[in-house]
Design a binder for these strands. Structure first.
Length: 876
RNA sequence: GCGAGCGUGGCGAAACUGGUAGACGCAAGGGACUUAAAAUCCCUCGACUUCGGUCAUACGGGUUCGAUCCCCGUCGCUCGCACCA
């Protein structure tokens, strides 16, 4: 029987339409079955999807389809992370309004995603720039404000004086604005902050409960939160050297044990005492200025030399009032960590040591390694910052660093300076509060009003939403909201006088910090429907890129806690399972070198292989092109492959199948033409085998064989089913692919026999059973092809509605096992024996094997190790 | 500098809890079918070999009856953080 080639261009839209008509993927919140929430990080609507999206969404779709077949009520929604700078840049460059640019992009990306055949519930779709979404975000903001989770404070920002805007740190390149090229200034602006630090300890501790997250991400978050245990320590200023009104300096330290090694105090250039000193001393002022400038731009590049200047201030050592130490301003002390002041212990800290050597300050070793010798231990150019035994530390000598920490902490806590304890134990975090103010148009307006009399007044909830005005211009730099003629003018909600709206909008990370919660009831007229949110959260499986390991995931964890405190959800953690997938990478091609180097797109070249050497030639002129390294797909290197082209020529199933095969999902996958063709051959092969046999299988009822020639077929299929099921449960897509290939290889000959009219009824029933298992196994990856095959076998109804098959235990367990037989750890023979044979029987049978007798050559075994159902090892 | 991870054929990779190293795919080579090509099907495919075997999982040691897997050291690559007191 001649069979037509499988034509994805015909089949894929056809099945997509059927799924659509049957609303297979629309999820009912009231469905009583066990829930499963699978989500991929929603995309920014840049205009086109790329291969990274294809891989990300293919993975999520496999999980969604698999869990659906397993009987779960699956929620698998999609939306758009739609606010942000690119829309405003488009407005500036091309005069398009950000809204129309964004919604057009959404429309085209949506049609691309639809062409992939993803099993998404599109009825829940929204974009974060929809008023219907961001009005609820404003409501959440106001609730957080009431709870004290939002506040304003002055803080330093990167200010671009040409564009009149604040720049994120990533937008500052070599001290200049990435767009304007202007030298970036540090400005103090009043900004809105979320109090994420209220949850520092909880965010840290709860990481331990996230056992379905990659260890790596948890570690990154742990380091980011940066908990340290130490103490606050107050140093009395020697009166004669004190600036007016100042009596003490407070420092934070994690090493109170090294207190006798102190030789100076150092404060940040922005420390209040530094400012006092600068006011009266031009040299100090100049030094502080220099620190500030270096801090903004090149600090990260140079491993900046430790520099400082003596303030003239002297302090008394807390444990010896007769001991006076100098106070320096130092460039390596940060104002926004701890108290902006440290005590320097040169022997125990490399920075302090470098500093001390430069300014001739004493270096007293106070800790030596446990196996050191107190008489000879000294410090050269390298500080010793490890644990050990105290020396040169009076009453601490001989104690361990841990003991010394406790003794000093206890003693200082019980001492007083003025009317407060000299020191107290203190846990400190690196994590800072989250600044959310952006001086931009295309973001969620912060719903507050500034009144000269009443101060900062929240917009009353009944007045929400605060909607972005549409009539804005982008012909001048700065925030269009600021110069809008009417929008910002508003009556104060409290006193009714003329007042001004806040013109800052929110960081777009706010938008993505709760969208997964909104998906649970996007129609609700409050931010959440509490029962729906509680039902669905946490997300069972979240899938996305590792680049969001810290910010997005940490902000979302904070947001969920804040929403919990304000009664919008009961869950504490948003994502139960997290998976970070690798990138799609591709070879690069280029010609020319240096400045005239030209990158060539994969679509414009042809590869030839001669004597094992691959060479690339340009399609247009036949000129040879150099094959470069394999890199992340990027426009600048032109090594991009457009998903649209792939779907048009091979179909969505091939693209999906390929990005899931080959590499483990957490690792990068190399996109190659040959690989895609291999995947495509597979789809054609599967179709051909099923289609050719379908005529003789249509009228047969599936039934696995328990004996006869067909038994092996049924065993193979049911074992594959068990294995692939396990692979899907663990997101081992590449292994599932390999096993599916094996199953197709094993079924090729039986299917061909059936196609030729061979095989009795029982044989055909077993083949049909195996074929159906195969189709179900590939369905999550290549759903259109699977539906087509399913229908070809004469099945009515959609495969997407069909339950996952159940493997037959008796077919999966072998009665006989093949044991490898080793002699001295090297394999010499094989033994086939009954699964439940006891040790003695195995030993006896092994020694009777020809190969074993030959290898032993008369020697008596010293020992025979039998690992049941595994292996036998004979030691001679 | 600190932290984490990785290193297996020509290539992407498998190998369960320490138990037959290289499944599966790609590339390559040979053959069948064809007037021919494509497609398809079959075979070979780590290295060396005196065809008995021997050596092979970055390198050097160790533990073990047995190590890709565990331990110690070295080298290389990737990622994250980087004055955090």
């Amino acid at each position: 029987m001649a069979t037509e080639r499988y034509n994805p261009r015909d089949a894929e839209p056809r099945w997509q339409q059927k799924w659509n008509e049957a609303k297979v993927f629309e999820t009912d919140n009231d469905d009583p079955r066990e829930k499963y929430y699978v989500l991929e990080m929603f995309p920014y609507p840049s205009g086109r999807i790329h291969m990274g999206h294809v891989r990300n969404y293919a993975m999520g779709d496999v999980v969604a389809r698999y869990k659906r077949a397993r009987g779960y009520n699956v929620l698998h929604p999609m939306g758009w992370d739609a606010f942000g700078m690119p829309a405003e840049n488009a407005a500036m460059e091309r005069g398009v309004h950000p809204a129309s640019w964004t919604y057009q992009n959404i429309a085209s990306m949506k049609s691309q995603l639809k062409a992939m055949g993803l099993s998404l519930d599109w009825s829940r779709e929204f974009a974060t720039c929809d008023v219907a979404y961001y009005q609820h975000q404003q409501r959440l903001f106001l609730d957080f404000l009431e709870k004290g989770l939002v506040y304003r404070k002055q803080s330093k920002v990167n200010w671009d004086p040409v564009d009149n805007t604040v720049l994120a740190n990533e937008q500052v390149i070599d001290g200049r604005g990435w767009r304007s090229g202007a030298l970036v200034e540090q400005r103090e602006l009043i900004q809105w902050f979320f109090k994420i630090t209220d949850f520092s300890q909880d965010l840290l501790e709860a990481l331990d409960t996230l056992d379905q997250w990659p260890e790596k991400v948890r570690l990154m978050q742990k380091n980011w939160i940066g908990r340290s245990e130490g103490m606050m320590l107050r140093w009395e200023i020697v009166e004669a050297t004190a600036p007016a009104g100042e009596t003490e300096i407070e420092v934070y330290t994690t090493r109170p044990d090294t207190l006798f090694g102190a030789s100076f105090l150092a404060i940040a250039a922005d420390h209040p005492l530094a400012k006092d000193a600068a006011a009266t001393n031009p040299a100090i002022d100049a030094f502080c200025e220099e620190c500030r400038r270096a801090g903004t731009s090149l600090a990260a590049l140079e491993t900046a030399e430790k520099k400082g200047i003596d303030t003239g201030i002297r302090v008394k050592h807390p444990l010896d009032p007769s001991w006076e130490l100098p106070v320096y301003i130092a460039n390596f002390v940060l104002m926004d960590y701890g108290t902006g002041a440290i005590f320097g212990c040169p022997s125990g800290d490399q920075r302090d040591l470098d500093f001390a050597r430069k300014y001739g300050l004493p270096v007293v070793p106070v800790v030596m390694p446990a196996d050191g010798d107190a008489a000879t231990f000294s410090i050269g150019d390298v500080a010793y910052d490890g644990d050990g035994i105290m020396i040169n530390s009076r009453f601490l000598d001989g104690k361990t660093t841990g003991e010394a920490f406790e003794i000093v902490a206890d003693r200082l806590s019980s001492m007083t300076l003025g009317n407060a304890p000299q020191g107290e134990r203190k846990v400190n975090f690196r994590l800072r509060d989250w600044g959310i103010s952006r001086q931009r148009y295309w973001g969620c307006p912060i719903p507050v009003i500034h009144c000269d009399d009443c101060g900062v007044v929240p917009v009353p909830k009944k007045d929400l939403p605060v909607q972005l005005p549409e009539d804005v211009t982008f012909d001048q730099p700065g925030n269009p909201l600021d110069r809008h003629l009417t929008w910002r003018h508003v009556a104060c909600p409290q006193c009714g006088k003329d007042a001004r709206r806040e013109t800052d909008t929110m960081d777009t990370f706010v938008d993505s910090s709760w969208y997964f919660t909104r998906f649970t009831a996007p129609w609700e007229d409050k931010p959440t429907d509490l029962s729906a949110a509680n039902r669905w959260l946490p997300v069972d499986q979240y899938i996305g890129g590792i680049e969001h390991a810290i910010l997005h995931l940490l902000y979302s964890r904070f947001f969920t806690r804040a929403m919990r405190e304000t009664g919008h959800v009961d869950a504490k953690e948003p994502f139960k399972g997290l998976f970070t997938q690798g990138m799609v990478v591709h070879e690069t091609y280029s010609r020319g070198s240096g400045m005239s180097r030209e990158w060539v797109a994969p679509a414009d070249i042809r590869i030839e292989e001669l004597d094992g050497k691959r060479r690339a030639y340009h399609l247009s002129d036949g000129e040879e092109v150099a094959i470069g390294s394999i890199e992340k797909m990027s426009k600048s290197k032109k090594n991009v492959v457009d998903p649209d082209d792939i779907i048009a020529s091979y179909g969505a199933d091939t693209a999906r199948f390929f990005v899931l095969s080959d590499s483990p999902p957490e690792r990068d996958v190399i996109w190659s033409e040959a690989g895609v063709e291999g995947a495509h051959r597979f789809t054609q092969r599967l179709w051909r085998l099923i289609a050719e046999a379908s005529g003789n299988l249509r009228d047969v009822l599936s039934n696995p064989a328990k004996d006869g020639d067909a038994k092996a077929i049924s065993q193979f299929a049911h074992k594959a089913l068990k294995a692939v099921q396990n692979d899907y449960d663990r997101l081992w897509f590449n292994k599932a692919v390999a096993r599916i290939y094996e199953l197709v290889n094993a079924l090729a000959s039986p299917l061909t026999k059936v196609a030729a009219g061979e095989g009795d009824q029982a044989y055909r029933a077993a083949v049909r059973d195996a074929a159906e298992i195969l189709i179900q196994l590939v369905a999550p990856m290549t759903p259109h092809l699977a539906e087509e095959c399913w229908a070809a076998l004469g099945n009515g109804g959609l495969l997407a509605h069909t339950n996952w098959p159940v493997y037959d235990d008796t077919l999966v367990i072998e009665n006989d096992v093949i044991l490898p037989v080793q002699i001295n750890g090297k394999k010499r023979a094989e033994l086939t024996i009954s699964r439940d044979a006891d040790q003695n029987a195995v030993t006896e049978a092994v020694l009777a094997l020809d190969d074993v007798m030959k290898a032993l050559n008369g020697q008596t075994p010293k020992k025979i190790i039998v690992v049941p159902q595994r292996i036998v090892n004979i030691v001679v």
